Simulated scan of single mutants.
Amino acid sequence: MDIAHIAQHAGMAGSVFATIFVVATATMRTMIPLRVFGILTNAMLIAVSIPTHNYPTLALHAVLLPVNVWRLHQMLQLVRDVKKSVNGDLSMEWLKPFMTERKCAAGEELFYKDEKAEHMFYIVSGRFRLVESGIELPVGAIVGELGMLSPSHTRTQTLECIEAGVVLGVSYRQVEELYVQNPEFGFYFLRLASARLFQNIETLETRLAQAHVAVPAEVASETA
């Protein structure tokens, strides 16, 4: 059997396996398995294209292969970052690559109490305050993420910019898409949001306790 026949049979076998990978890829519901099978399909079709001199297919999958590798890396990195945040400082900096920048002027209100919640924000610079509670948010804080988990999807407070700055915003739809693409990300995101909720509750309880102690002390000083 000459080299031409070997190449022909190798090409046919490779085409069969590539077809199987393509079909398997079409059945994938989540992003990581999809990218893995996509990479295998690209590699297989590149290998088949070389002996059969199918240069258009070779060129196409030579371009798609690094794209799939990069997207797989991004998703795996996202999951690692979320896991790290859950076990660490509850930071949501891992969301920054998926967010868009917005400049805010002093006096501008980013959202109002009782309005429908559709975005969360990461504070890059400036000063921002939750009007109803009077809490000022530091640079690096995430605000608005709990609205996505609320049954009514409404804001519980108004967010006001008190000194010009920049925020990064991401829609709940984008976060939901990441969840659909990778359920593991969704699991850790829910854990992270829940941990931040309990952290906020603990902070409020501490402030209420301090206020409760301060009030009797003031009353005692007035009656003394």
Rank of each mutant, 00 (worst) to 15 (best):
M120L: 13
Y112V: 09
G107N: 03
V131P: 00
E118F: 00
I123E: 05
C104A: 08
F121L: 11
A106R: 09
G107M: 10
H119M: 10
G126D: 09
K103Q: 13
V131N: 01
L110E: 08
F111R: 15
V139M: 13
E108H: 14
A117T: 01
A141E: 15
S125V: 09
R127S: 07
I142L: 09
F128Y: 15
A105K: 08
G140H: 07
K113I: 07
I123K: 00
P138A: 15
G126I: 06
S133D: 09
E132N: 01
G140C: 10
I142Y: 05
D114L: 03
A105H: 02
F128D: 09
D114K: 08
S125A: 04
F111D: 13
E108Q: 13
K103H: 13
V124S: 01
K113L: 01
I135H: 04
R129Q: 13
K116T: 09
G126M: 09
V131K: 03
E118W: 00
K116S: 15
M120A: 12
H119C: 13
E115Y: 10
P138W: 11
K113Q: 09
I142F: 09
K103A: 11
G134T: 02
I123M: 04
Y112H: 07
K113R: 07
Y122P: 01
E115D: 13
E109A: 15
A117P: 04
K116W: 08
G134V: 05
V124N: 06
F121A: 08
A141P: 12
L137I: 03
K103G: 13
E109W: 14
F111Y: 15
I135G: 00
M120P: 00
G134A: 03
E136S: 11
R127V: 02
P138E: 13
H119A: 05
L110Q: 03
K103N: 10
C104V: 14
A105Q: 12
E118Y: 00
R127F: 11
A105S: 02
A117E: 00
K116A: 15
G140S: 13
E136R: 07
G134F: 07
G140M: 05
G126K: 05
K103C: 11
V124H: 02
K113T: 02
G107L: 05
K113Y: 00
G140Y: 04
I135Y: 07
E108I: 06
S125L: 07
D114N: 06
L110Y: 03
E108K: 14
V124M: 12
V139K: 14
I123C: 08
R127H: 07
R127Q: 08
E136Y: 03
V139I: 12
A141Q: 15
K116M: 12
I123P: 04
G134I: 04
S133W: 08
G140E: 06
H119T: 03
E118S: 01
H119I: 07
A106E: 11
E136F: 11
R127C: 03
E132Y: 11
H119N: 14
E115N: 05
P138R: 14
A105F: 10
S125C: 09
S133N: 12
I135T: 01
Y112L: 14
C104Q: 07
Y122V: 04
A106G: 10
L110M: 03
